[in-house]
Every structure is written in structure tokens, then in C-alpha cells.
Design a protein around this nucleic acid. Structure first.
Lengths: 344, 344
DNA sequence: CTGTTAGCGCGTTCAG
DNA sequence: CTGAACGCGCTAACAG
């Protein structure tokens, strides 16, 4: 490994000067600058980032914790963080939590040990209380796509309650009254928030959702299938199914296709997320879009601001979902409603 | 920040002893061990990984370069690398190349600057010559999912030629003779290798592919649509389309659906990759699967072996694709072949 | 088994 | 504008 010492010797200067041409070239004389620069390129010298970090007590790095890399859901957020930090001349370094609470915690500390100046944490498994404890101890953490009460200024997230409201508004406007709901795991805040928003709006509209038609899924396609089967088993009229993510919606559509039930003619299906694949489903999935990349970018920016004690009040931290209208939800005539439902 | 010095003072020992309880607890006396450990937990001391790396000249870290995080294609490989390294007590740190040759190169060097002990590089944009130059200078790089002649022992990849052969075998066996092909960009080795394998096998079978029916795409869904439109415009009989990735296949299926052309009844479509979404397309896509996660894991293991000068001859480095039979390719009767083709 | 002494490769004073 | 000296937090001999 070629170090600064060798460069300084070849250029006939001190290491301090070499350090200067690296960090503040303008304060060094033109001639010596040239001298050092040619020495650098002659030797193929590359500054050791680890040593620099130690000496300068600044790593210019933000750590990111996500569940796993293999899904485009997390990938899109990570991409956003990375792009934001790159344009701030920071680096992102990501670690996977392997979808466990201990994994999330240990990833945070491992990243902190590496002297990351800030952390962007996506947490599904830690409880609000555990997170609060963590946030009380570590001030440089940003929570990505989740709201932690009491730490609003450290959170960048989608307004899931409004997302649920949006879904309700949309389905109601499309004429649906007999609506089934497929949630994610009960413990997931995304899911419960969306459900809250949805049910509240339904209620406000003077309508209601049959409790028997609220199913708990696990965010995987198979639970979409299961939900459809349960709906059929119940035999109640249902004109629309709201799935809290697109994968479950895909599973539901699949089950319909197999049984010869037409989507959206016989039943409308609404998803959530706007997953990569949603535009390729048949019918193309109408869904509620989360701006994941933007959320990631905002989280990256916030973490950077926090790390550099900059003013972070300017950052947008609450994002709105939006309806992406494709082909899986159909408008139905109110007077034909019950008829349709029964035909199911 | 609490450092070793504070720990040593509180425990009444030297920093060397603190270092020992961290790195080789067995050589230190039980009593002092206890003493130091309580001091550590009392102070909430956490070793600075950067300083450790500098002093020990070992980062226990492998860098990974991929095009982008947002696609599950790269995510699956990254996941494999990460899992393999985690079980070797190494860390993976990933950087995105932003899909450019300079990006790939600078990511490699940035990772090296951070004292990664090895690099796993996925390169689409660098030429073979550029890669050879890089590999000659840097010995600790592993090429993921690409073959570089002359550096076979540094490569972990899918045998794309055999993947192409496999595709040809399958389609021929299913009775297809009038086959169209949609490749990726000409410069991509994946694409040209698969094409080679495909055409060679077709030739060996005494058949041939109409040159007019070989289209160049860009691996994105829209080129699948375009290809279908061109096929229809040509008016030649075609019973099957082989797309060199699943996204293009999805686009092709979509175009068929819109035009009322049934897949696979009117035309069979075969993909490549086994993308996350392929099982949700309609019809479910029959495709050639790449074991991306395993390839990533093998690359991680190889990089680790290289970094630690271990024997890396034992690693499996060439992977085979396999047919995943779903519903988008239909067996056709040879005697009905031309009839079918014309009906298109 | 433990403390002392040197660094790891660099940034950063402070004189000059 | 430049060099000498010191320190970042830790590991690694070497004595004892």
C-alpha cells in the first residue's frame, strides 16, 4: 500500500503538504501543488478513507438499515437514500436486519460502530417503546417510513391513515358498498393505520364494513388467495376487496382467475404500494401508490442534516399516497349493487 | 464518545488489557476480565470499528458494486452476497454504480479506499478490456454473473450459453419451429451468450431461425411490446417468442392481451431470469431461472477466500439455468404448426 | 497474565 | 505558504 509518506518523499515535501493538496488545494503554492500531484499519480496513491475518517473524526457516511435487499420495496427506499446522499457528497452504507428485532438493533449499532454520522432506520419489528428507548440514547437516527409519536421530527413517513382514507374515498366513489379488507399482520403499524383511515372514512360516509369481511394477511401473495377463498366460503355479497399491499392483491387476482371469477367485473380489487409488478398483472392493478424513493431521499436528507447539525426543519417529512388508477377496480351502478354482489 | 482509555482507567488496567478482553478474552485473568467487562457495560463502551480496522489492518469487509438497488434482480444477488458474508463473520458494504462505466470503476475504488478486503463487482458497462486492465491491477476483485476470459477463477456466473441452449431445447421439444427472439442490448454479454447458445442448438437440430425474427430490445418491458408489434407487422408465422428477460416477456404478453391475442394459444412466450413478478403474470410466465441469490452467495464466498488467501478452488463458480415451467408456453402439434402460425 | 512502547495512515494545530 | 509535532482510537510486539 502506498501511503502519504511515500508521496511526500517523492515530492520532496512534508506529509502535511500532501494532506493539504488533498483537502485544501487552494492554500498551497502552484508549483508544489503540481509536484505533489504528479507524485500522487506516479505512485497511484489513493488516500486511505479509514485513516482519514479516524483523523478527521468524520466519515461522511450514513448507515441504512432495511429488512432485506431482495425485495424492490426496500430497494426503492434504499435507492432514494443513496441518491440523496450521493448528491450531498456522502456515502450510504446499508445493512440488512434479516427481519428481526435484534437484527434491527444490532445493525444500528454495527453501523454506529463504523462511525456513521447518522442512521436511516426502517423498522418493522421493534416496538414503539423499544424505538423510543433507542431514540433517547442515540440522537442521530432517522426513522424511515414509520411514525414514532414523540419523535415526529426524526420520522419520514407516508401518512398511512390518509392512505386508508384515500382508498375508502376511491372505492366509495366507484360505487362500492360491500367491501372486504385484507390487512397485513396486526402488529404492523402500516396496516393498522390504513385500516383506521379506511374504517373512519367509511363510517363518516354513513356506511359500514362487515366485521366478518376484515381478514388478516401477512403481506404475501398466498394470503390474498386465502382471503378470496374465505370470501367465497362466507357467501356474502362483496363487490370490492381492498388489499393492504400489492402482493396480496396479486394473490387475490390469481385466485379469481383460477376460479373463473372476472376482475373487476365480478369483484374489484384495490392494492397498496404500487409495486414494480402491478402494472403487469391482469387486469393491471389499481392501487394506492407510496412514493418510496422520495421517502428514502427525504430520510437521507434528514439524516444528513441531523449529522451536520444543519437546519432540518425545511425537509418534507410526511408524504401522501395517491391513487394509481389502472384496471382492477370498476365503477358500479348503485342500483345494481346487491344484484352484483349476490351473483358472486 | 467513550474510548478505551476511559474503560481502562475505570477498570484500573492498561488499554492493552482492554483490547485483550475484546479480542482474546481467554488469555486474560478471570478477575480482570470481569473488572473490565463491567467497566465496559457501565460506560456503555463500544469499540470504534474504524480505529480497529486501521490498527489491525483488517476491515473484515467486502465491497459490492451493483447497478442499482431498486430492482429485485440486483437485490437478490446482493442478498446472497450479504448472507454468505454474514455467516463468515464479514460485512458487506454495497455501492451503486448508477449504471455507467465510470460509476462502476469509481465504486470499486471508493470501496477499496475504505479498505474493503475484497470486492464483488457486477459489471454491465465496462468492456472486457477495461475489466482485464482492472483485474490485472487489483487482485482482490470477483466478477459476479459475468465471465471474463483469462480470469475464470475470479468469476462467478451463470452459463448463459447453456441457458440459451436450454431455451432452444425446451421450445423445440414443445414443438415450436417458427420462433422469434428478443435479445437485450447487443453489447450485453448475457444477451449475446444466450443467443449463441440458442442459435447453435437450433442449428444442431437441423432447424433454423429466421433472421428477420431476431429483434434487439433493451431489457425493459416496452421493448417486449415493440417486438410483438413488429412480429405482427411482418406477418410471418410465429408460434413462440423467446425473450431474454422476464420484463420484456411481460411487455410482450401485455401487448398480446391488448390485441386479443391469446398466450399461449396463439403464441407461446418464454422468458429468462424468473423475476419476482413472473408467477403473477397472466398467463404465469414459463421462464429460464437464474439462481441469483446463490450466485451472489458464491461470489461472496469467493471474495472472502481471496481476501483471506484461503483455498478458493473448492467454490462452485459456474451455475446452470433451469426451466421453470408455468403456463405461457404451450406444446403444439407439429402437423398443425404452419396452420397455427398463419392464423396469427 | 499484564503494562509499556510503538505504530496504523492521516488531519491539524502552531511556528516560522 | 510550509514543516514539525501531536493525536484520532485501537492493536501488536516486547518485556517483565
Amino acid at each position: 500500500m502506498v501511503t502519504m509518506v511515500e508521496v511526500s518523499q517523492r515530492a520532496g515535501v512534508s506529509t502535511a503538504t500532501v494532506s493539504r493538496v488533498l483537502n485544501s488545494p487552494d492554500v498551497v503554492d502552484q508549483k508544489t501543488l503540481q509536484l505533489v500531484q504528479t507524485a500522487i499519480s506516479d505512485l497511484g496513491y489513493r488516500p486511505n478513507a479509514v485513516a482519514r475518517g479516524l483523523a478527521s473524526r468524520s466519515s461522511k457516511t450514513i448507515g441504512v438499515v432495511i429488512n432485506r435487499f431482495s425485495s424492490s420495496y426496500y430497494g426503492r427506499m434504499l435507492q432514494g437514500v443513496e441518491e440523496a446522499l450521493t448528491s450531498l457528497k456522502f456515502k450510504a452504507i446499508a445493512e440488512s436486519s434479516h427481519e428481526s428485532a435484534e437484527g434491527e438493533m444490532s445493525a444500528v449499532y454495527s453501523l454506529l460502530d463504523r462511525q456513521c454520522e447518522g442512521i436511516v432506520l426502517h423498522s418493522d419489528m421493534l416496538s414503539d417503546d423499544q424505538l423510543r428507548e433507542l431514540f433517547n440514547k442515540q440522537s442521530k437516527i432517522v426513522l424511515m417510513n414509520r411514525l414514532l409519536n414523540g419523535f415526529e421530527d426524526k420520522c419520514v413517513y407516508l401518512d398511512n391513515v390518509r392512505g386508508g382514507t384515500l382508498a375508502a374515498d376511491y372505492l366509495i366513489e366507484m360505487g362500492h358498498r360491500d367491501i372486504a379488507i385484507l390487512t397485513g399482520p396486526e402488529s404492523f403499524f402500516e396496516s393498522s393505520d390504513r385500516l383506521d383511515g379506511f374504517l373512519t372514512r367509511v363510517d363518516q360516509s354513513g356506511l359500514n364494513v362487515d366485521q366478518d369481511l376484515i381478514f388478516e394477511g401477512d403481506f404475501r401473495a398466498s394470503s390474498g388467495r386465502t382471503a378470496m377463498e374465505r370470501i367465497w366460503a362466507l357467501g356474502k355479497p362483496v363487490t370490492a376487496l381492498f388489499c393492504m399491499n400489492d402482493e396480496m392483491a396479486a394473490g387475490a387476482i390469481d385466485a379469481c382467475l383460477e376460479r373463473g371469477v372476472s376482475v373487476p367485473k365480478n369483484i374489484s380489487i384495490l392494492g397498496f404500494d404500487d409495486h414494480e409488478m402491478s402494472r403487469f398483472l391482469h387486469p393491471k392493478l389499481t392501487t394506492i401508490r407510496q412514493p418510496l424513493t422520495e421517502i428514502g431521499a427525504a430520510a437521507g436528507n434528514l439524516a444528513h442534516a441531523l449529522a451536520r447539525q444543519a437546519d432540518h426543519k425545511k425537509n418534507k417529512t410526511v408524504f401522501e399516497a395517491e391513487v394509481v388508477e389502472r384496471a382492477s377496480v370498476m365503477k358500479i351502478q348503485l342500483n345494481k349493487r346487491s344484484q352484483l354482489g349476490e351473483r358472486l
